[in-house]
Write a protein that binds this DNA or RNA. Structure first.
Lengths: 203, 203
DNA sequence: GACAGCATACCAACTGGTTGGTATTGTTCC
DNA sequence: GGAACAATACCAACCAGTTGGTATGCTGTC
């Protein structure tokens, strides 16, 4: 009962890590098996194909991220804009770890697979969109309070934030370090502050 | 004389296209050969390894992009901020084509190779940074004119613009269409307008 | 201008190793 | 005893790179 779940979870954890380091195509099933300390026989008992593993890993990653952000301290703040800015700062704080630890599995995989593996593309799309959607409530509330007449939608801003994060990760990979990403998130924060008239707030 | 250059260019053009569609690891040397209408013998005459092809393709891509942007009509505008906003709008206009036509080879390749192929990572890093640097002059001039006291640097804003573009491409791939990317660039434009007090300009 | 000498461009067939996936046989837990 | 899980052994397809060779120039010399 536990072993079954544990083995599958171990495969998914390893897959997440290896996919984020080498990408989908370059990671072999053996890589994942070795990382999880299992053999191929076990692997193909849990997953029909490598593609199925990728789809499951995308879901696994999304669940992990969901747990991380929904319980983060900034979530307790009263003001919706504070929560939104808290999200960005929390993202910045995470940048301290190693590259494969803070980058996004979904963005990494969808780049290679969007044309050749529709199932993976769909999984990545759904989970990115769902994560972006976790921001829309706060954005909508903040908009009502601080920028009620603005023309943009809460949904599009949520996606823009995701895009900036994904792009920041790419630059961090290119530079082999998180410093650029931190600077990018600084600009993102400034954009949000300008959008919501952060300076004039509460005066 | 002509044949030699033409074959190599054809290999590079094909590589650019296939890499952008399937990523680095998933494209085979045979893919590139078939696309270029050549054989492996010819391929390995021009490139020692597949990795060397990737590095050359990155350079090829950067040269192509350089030609495209340096001759674009918006470059002729007198005001530096107009040129900067022109760049963003030009990027939006390009989104009309198919996905492998407007996405960035450098961002795509570096995601998969940053940890396993240092030479490719370095090439991508250099060409992304160089492209970002083509914006810094305009940004610095615009800053002097419209936001002289701002704390951010021209260089970091250029990189932020690149990050946003890269992220917009990822979302476009996930959604299998450029609409999201267009919305993202709308936000990016708004950020630039807010940063440079675009509304109050020339008053 | 013709011919030797040489480098470049290209090709078809092959190789050794890898990879996703399968078949079969235990093993463990209820 | 049977269902879930895991290990070993194996395979056919694939892939980066090699080999050995041909064709096409280009250069200098007489």
């Amino acid at each position: 009962m536990q072993t079954q779940h544990e083995s599958k979870t171990r495969l998914l954890d390893t897959a997440m890590q290896v996919f984020r380091t080498k990408g989908y195509a370059a990671t072999t099933v053996d890589d994942v098996c070795a990382g999880a300390g299992l053999t191929k026989g076990s692997f193909f008992h849990h997953f029909k194909t490598k593609e199925e593993l990728a789809v499951a890993a995308a879901r696994h990653f999304a669940e992990m991220a969901d747990g991380l952000f929904s319980t983060a301290p900034y979530r307790a703040r009263a003001d919706p804009l504070d929560r939104l800015l808290g999200y960005v700062e929390f993202r910045r704080a995470i940048l301290q770890g190693k590259l494969p630890e803070f980058t996004c599995l979904l963005g990494t995989m969808v780049q290679e697979t969007y044309d050749s593996h529709p199932a993976i593309r769909r999984a990545c799309d759904r989970h990115i969109s769902e994560h972006a959607a976790t921001l829309t409530d706060d954005i909508a509330q903040a908009k009502r309070l601080y920028a009620p007449r603005a023309k943009w939608t809460a949904e599009s801003l949520g996606l823009y934030i995701q895009a900036t994060l994904q792009g920041a990760f790419i630059l961090a990979k290119a530079r082999h370090g998180p410093a650029v990403a931190d600077e990018c998130l600084g600009h993102l924060r400034r954009y949000l502050e300008l959008l919501f008239n952060h300076n004039k707030r509460k005066e």
